[in-house]
Design a protein around this nucleic acid. Structure first.
Length: 427
RNA sequence: GGAGGAUUAGCCUAAUUGGUAAGGCAGCAGUCUUGAAAACUGCCGGGUUUGCGCCCAUGGGGGUUCGAGUCCCUCAUCCUCCGCCA
């Protein structure tokens, strides 16, 4: 959520940001907000005056009753009228407040100045790489679906029977490999990168979705259990960031760094037909997510650190990748700056997004009311929140299986995973 | 699922038959001190205002009342007990 003061003071900057995000159509919202803000201010003034009157006279009534001198009847009946007026005005005010809140919640975050201009994914800018690792792939490659089927380690068909398309099943050494990947990533981030491990709930309430910005803008992408008011998490970012919702964090404890494994659930509504094969687009996948809470002045250093932590995993696994900076037209509404890490898929002959590393600045913190006191006397400030996948296993598994396949159709397990799998080869 | 109790500021704790949130700790600044501690003084929830001030704020949301921390309804969370259950 944007600071209303920012919109009051520099509405033109906000509108310029909307244009950079290719959301110029929303510029009207800024003017609408300013209009509501103005009439709200007038109305607050009127109700405050009436409330001041009521408070003052109520004290007079109390005095009259206490001393028993004179009658309060006349004053009480006057205040009855005043209270009725206040009720009416308060109700109107509530309408304005709700309208403002709804508008504010739908406005996207500010953009960091380093975010490149651009209309779509095609305008994203290469930031790092490509980082190459040599693999002996001088034969006709199988894609991950063919490998998964022939080796009996992935079963998309039965997943579709049990749940529906996009719910993959890992079997035997495939299941073990998936678990090995998750454990390897968690261990690396906790042991080498200083993160505290969290195992969060996979179902959250609506306040949590609102806090991280998935609600209301991306409500249609989230699985919903209406009877209990719960939502399946699309990423561990939601429960982990919301751990500290409405908290005053101890300034000495910052920065806070969590890493969490979770299953992630996404409806992927409206994306039928593209990238639907196998792991390329699924409704449930596994992801290890890093989440950071920092002082505002440290958040852009933290962004680079999280990126390097995710890269460390790919380097250890020797999986080729590149890093791109998302342009204004492609970056998500919640992020102020975002890098995507894309892994190379030799069978698909293209890069696949495997990680997204974002700085949300104070956008989520303001929505979720996560603050700290920089020092004893100053006012509470919002922290900056960041997160990055480190990484999602589905697209990573595509690239891993393809790179580590052998000419005779087997899979060599990457060196660093062998302590976790207990075997060196699949097939 | 049922019964009872609890929720007050960063933390801890008060508030007559309903009369408009009192203190303490921690923290910050100052006085004092070679320095520190102690002591003393001030600040110490949010909004608005140049300022005085005014408004809001007792877990969330409603209601009764001139006036609600206090009474009523409802929801959430925690504790105790009962029931059910892996």
């Amino acid at each position: 959520m944007l600071d209303i003061n920012l919109i009051r003071q520099s509405p033109d900057d906000v509108i310029a940001m909307l244009h950079k995000r290719q959301m110029g159509g929303d510029a009207g919202k800024v003017h609408e907000l300013l209009d509501i803000d103005r009439s709200r201010k007038e109305m607050v003034q009127r109700t405050d005056d009436l409330k001041a009157l009521r408070n003052r006279v109520s004290k007079e009534i109390a005095d009259i009753k206490r001393t028993g001198q004179g009658s309060a009847e006349e004053l009480i009946s006057q205040m009855k009228t005043v209270s009725d007026q206040i009720s009416v005005l308060d109700a109107e005010l509530a309408v304005l407040d709700t309208g403002m809140e709804e508008l504010l919640l739908t406005l996207p975050n500010r953009l960091h100045e380093s975010v490149p201009e651009g209309r779509s994914a095609e305008d994203n800018v290469l930031y790092k790489g490509p980082v190459e690792f040599s693999h002996d792939l001088g034969f006709t490659l199988k894609n991950h679906l063919e490998l998964g089927r022939s080796l009996g380690i992935l079963d998309f068909e039965r997943g579709a029977k049990v749940s529906g398309a996009g719910f993959p099943v890992y079997v035997g050494k495939g299941a073990r490999l998936e678990r090995a990947l998750i454990n390897f990533m968690l261990d690396t981030h906790t042991s080498n990168h200083g993160y505290t491990e969290v195992f969060p709930p996979f179902l959250v309430n609506q306040d949590s979705l609102r806090g991280t910005g998935q609600w209301p803008k991306f409500a249609d992408q989230v699985y919903h259990m209406p009877e209990d008011g719960l939502y399946a998490i699309p990423t561990a970012e939601v429960p982990v960031t919301n751990l500290h919702r409405a908290e005053m964090l101890d300034a000495e404890k910052l920065p806070i760094a969590y890493v969490a494994y979770s299953a992630c659930f996404r409806r992927e509504a409206g994306s039928y037909g593209k990238d639907t094969r196998g792991f390329l687009r699924v409704h449930q996948f596994n992801k290890v997510e890093m989440v950071r809470f920092t002082r505002p002045e440290e958040s852009y250093d933290a962004l680079e650190q999280i990126l390097s932590h995710a890269e460390a995993i790919l380097c250890a696994l020797k999986i080729p990748y590149r890093v791109i900076t998302l342009c204004g037209g492609d970056i998500s509404a919640n992020a102020a700056k975002c890098y995507d890490i894309e892994v190379w898929s030799p069978a698909e002959d293209r890069y696949l997004e495997a990680s997204s590393v974002s700085n949300f600045e104070d956008y989520q913190a303001r929505r979720s009311n996560i603050r700290f006191k920089p020092d004893g006397k100053s006012k509470p400030e919002f922290v900056h929140t960041l997160n990055g996948s480190g990484l999602a296993t589905s697209r990573l598994m595509v690239s891993l299986l393809e790179h580590y396949q052998t000419a005779d159709g087997r899979i060599t397990v990457p060196e660093v995973l062998r302590p976790y799998t207990g075997f060196d080869v699949i097939g």
